[in-house]
């Protein structure tokens, strides 16, 4: 079932300051760009590296968020987005505002790489890393612009390659060192398992409960009065910082051959209508991860099933010492 990729190296592009990235990640979520945007960035980057003759293939990408500032109003039951005034229409009147959410993020990107050349040629690895860093600096990430740091010479901004070609122990060791360099921050991992778990719990009380009910239930805090302890209790204890996220697209019908759909972006590529698909994710501090595979997202594509999604192989581990998030 899993398309989990194999890779030989991790390329870390640390602490990219991305301004005005998309904060609206799907028709039902906001607050961080969709993981599909990072997968798309990875593909776009490989097109550039291939064109430049580099021997690197990207297999997946991980994202650690160090800082974020969403451009929304503070306070109030719901947030509204700070908007930008669009240029006036042709008669000078104010153009209709299409609400776009924006967020500033400082992220580290961790690219899962396979490269034969990097295993043989340390110089090539170093040159390629510099080239990739240059490419990224001129690209848009989730619609946002990468802004150079004030002090680009600081070690924390230097790209880094982690060699994972050694034996199991070497790989774990290399990753253990890396993860400590990714804090402070949080990385997004998949928690598909939670929906089934919550669905089972809901179905025990109401046989008609659906997976959608489970997803909605996980997207909010549910309080019950505990008659034994005489107080209200929420259902987030021990759950970690779990959030609803878009994970990709599901097709709405068949593939149209290239050129069949009027006004498609290009006349050659097969075209398909789709909708966002959702699941649950968790923001977790990288120091809690044991191996690289746990933070890497990769594409899983099944055109015949109409499925275009991003996957991540994190599986929850029991950590009795993790600080709990409490609500009131």
């Amino acid at each position: 079932m899993s398309d989990a990729p194999n890779f030989t190296h991790l390329l870390v592009l640390p602490r990219l300051n991305v301004q005005n990235a998309n904060a609206i990640s799907s028709p039902l979520t906001h607050g961080f760009p969709s993981i599909t945007a990072f997968i798309g960035l990875m593909w776009a980057l490989e097109r550039k590296t291939r064109a430049a003759g580099l021997d690197v293939a990207f297999q997946g990408i991980g994202v650690v968020c160090h800082r974020h500032q969403e451009q929304t109003t503070e306070g109030g039951y719901t947030k509204a987005f700070h908007l930008t005034r669009n240029p006036a229409a042709k008669d000078g009147s104010t153009a209709a505002i299409v609400e776009e959410g924006r967020i500033h993020i400082e992220v580290s990107l961790i690219l899962a790489v396979t490269s034969d050349r990097w295993q043989r040629d340390a110089k090539a690895q170093q040159d390629d890393t510099e080239t990739i860093q240059q490419f990224i600096a001129a690209m848009r990430i989730a619609g946002g612009s990468v802004m150079p740091p004030d002090s680009p010479w600081l070690p924390r901004y230097q790209p880094q390659v982690v060699d994972l070609t050694g034996n199991e122990a070497d790989r774990l060791d290399a990753f253990r060192k890396l993860r400590l360099r990714l804090v402070p921050g949080f990385t997004l991992v998949s928690r598909d398992d939670l929906i089934t778990q919550r669905h089972d719990a809901l179905a025990a009380e109401d046989a008609n409960a659906t997976r959608l009910d489970a997803w909605l239930s996980l997207s909010r805090i549910n309080w019950r009065y505990n008659d034994d302890e005489h107080k209200w209790q929420h259902d987030r204890r021990g759950l970690g910082w779990v959030v609803p996220i878009p994970v990709g697209y599901g097709a709405l019908g068949d593939v149209h051959p290239g050129g069949d759909v009027v006004n498609a972006r290009d006349p050659d590529t097969p075209f398909r209508f789709a909708e966002s698909l959702y699941s649950m994710g968790q923001w977790i501090s990288p120091h809690r991860l044991e191996q690289a595979e746990q933070l890497i997202w990769y594409a899983q594509t099944r055109p015949d099933d109409g499925l275009y999604r991003c996957c991540n192989d994190y599986r929850p581990i029991d950590d009795p010492f993790e600080a709990l998030y409490d609500f009131d």
């Binding site: 490989e46 498609a264 590529t269 209508f273 909708e275 275009y308």
Partner: peptide
């Protein structure tokens, strides 16, 4: 409209589908 790599290398244009996500008003 977003490009999605179906299989193979991303530097080959033939390896993509073009997806147009639509807003599910029902959902």
């Amino acid at each position: 409209q977003v490009y999605w790599l179906i299989d193979g290398r991303p530097d080959d244009n033939r390896n993509f589908h073009l997806l147009q996500p639509l807003f599910s008003s029902a959902l």
